[in-house]
Amino acid sequence: MSANAKLLYCRCAYAQVVPQTVKDDVLAKLCESGASFESVADLCEMAAHRDPRLKAFAGNGPLRIAACYPRVVQGLFTQCGAPLLEDAEILNMRAQTAEEVGAAMLRDA
């Protein structure tokens, strides 16, 4: 993964399956850093509505996503005709700690 990976944070706002403290803490870590990043209310909602922005995310070079299970996130992008590049990195806020996710997201910052 190159040093200039773009960062994407999913808030899982439509049916909060990601623990509130984890997503709050990851957002806080991103906000404490000097990094630019993208954030969306809910990748599932975007995928359900075939939001063309998913294509922009997938096709814009190296990407790191803080969301949930990698199989799901990959599947959502594929289902929208915007498969993620092989080296896209998916951090799992449902299973990992905020420290792990934050550190991985910001390791070049």
Binding site: S36, V40, A41, A56
Partner: peptide, 18 residues
């Protein structure tokens, strides 16, 4: 985000924006 908006944080560091 909790209201459904998409938010980009744009800083002078790097170009993280899509």
């Amino acid at each position: 985000l909790d209201k459904g908006y998409a938010v980009t944080r744009a800083t002078a560091n790097d170009s993280g924006a899509m």
